[in-house]
Each structure stands twice: as C-alpha cells, then as structure tokens.
Amino acid sequence: MKISILSKMLLFFSPIIFLCACEKNSVSNNGAAQTGKGGSITRFTIAKNYLYVVSNHFLNVYSLSDPAKPRQVHTSDLNYDIETIYPYGNYLFLGTRTGLYIYSIDTASSPSLIGEAKHARSCDPVVVNDSVAFVTLKSSSGCGPAEAGLYIHDIADINHPVLKKTIPLPDPMGLGIQDSILYVCCGSAGMKVFNVKDPYSPTLISTQADGKYLDVIPYNGILICNDEEGIILYDIHDPAKPALIKKIS
C-alpha cells in the first residue's frame, strides 16, 4: 500500500522534477548571474564560473570570479586547428580539423584532455545528448577528404568515442537537439529534422525550407535559427513539428 502511494506521488511529481531539470539545462544559475545559451558554432562558451575561448591553437581559460574583469588562469597549447567548443555536463567538446577532442572540467580552471576521436576530421560543430555526440562535417571547408555529413559517436565510454553512424548531407553546419529531435542546418538545402530516439539509426522527419540555415539554438520551446538573412523562429513545443513563428530580416 505504502509503495503504491509512493509510486503515485513519484508519478505526480516526476513531470515537475523533469521541468526543473529542463530549467537548469536551459539556463544555468550561478547565484544571481545567469548565463545565456549559444549556438553550436562558437569559440566562446561559459561553463561553471569560467569563460572558455578556443583560438586557432589554444584553449584559453578565464576566471569570471570578477565577471567584469575576466582573468586568464590557464592556456593549453594544442597542436591542431580548433574550430568550435561545446559544453556538456562536466565536459568540453572541441571540434577541430583533426578530430573531436573531449576535455574534462572537473577541475574547471585547468581542463584536461580525456578522449578523442581522430578518424572524424570534424571541422564543424558538435552537440551532445547523454552518451551520444553529433558532429557535422563540411567537406568544402578545407577540412580534408572526409565526406560531408552527420557523424554520430557513441561516447558512453568518454575516453574512447566510437563512430557509429555517418549520414551524408549537403554542406551541414550548425546543429541543435531538443529531446530526441535533432535539427541540422544545411544552408540553402534547408534544415533537416531528424528523430534520434534511436541515435544510431536516425530517421528524417522533415526538411524546413524557410531560409539559408547556419545554426540553431533550441531555447524554452522556441527554435532560434541563424539565417543568412536574419533570424527565423519556430515553435517547438512539439519538437518533431517545428511551426514557423516569425522571420526577422
């Protein structure tokens, strides 16, 4: 009897717990100071109390203990051309010209390299969901001979990412994930909407063709798309069915 009441209570509260989790994911709180959310193509990111900046060959770490005056606390000299940085949980994912590199920020002031997948010459951005890393690769950006497309890595063992699936796509750029729906920007070829519930065999749901898509940010039920001519907003309360709200140009 007690157990069933408990389980009912759990059932009742679980959506609330879920909501709280979402809240924390979308906007990480640090006392009064809130952090925003960036796209998948970026060289700046804020995690914990630090600003991480990837320049061509360096991972620079700035302490934000005095937020007005970032103070450099660490620099890693990396031997490869870095393009993007993406934070997820306790990790930073670096998309570089020679592969995907994973850094632990357990010690936030000095990230340490813990994993790499060199076979994917992943010039372009990375997004991560649980134990899966989605990477896009543009073949036209001088990143080597690999085929343009979506590269899906199993990162359950964070030290040894394994490439599980490749989907050829025309010129993919930024990407974003909401629940089990993945949005991949393919410039003038549209935005591909994938169901990645089974991450290693994604199914294409639709292709949105309202602009030239460069990057996306899923944010509080809205999908913010970076378009060559401005910004395109979609309602994604049902993530599988983006509904056009507004084009800003």
């Binding site: 809130q34 925003g36 959310k37 960036g38 796209g39 193509i41 970026t42 460069l214 990057d215 940010i217 944010y219 913010i224 970076n226 378009d227 060559e228 001519e229 401005g230 910004i231």
Partner: peptide, 8 residues
C-alpha cells in the same frame, strides 16, 4: 550573419 546567442 555570424554567431547567435540568446539571453533571457
């Protein structure tokens, strides 16, 4: 068009 960022 370059990077995008959302804050509140």
């Amino acid at each position: 068009a370059g990077n995008i960022y959302v804050f509140k």
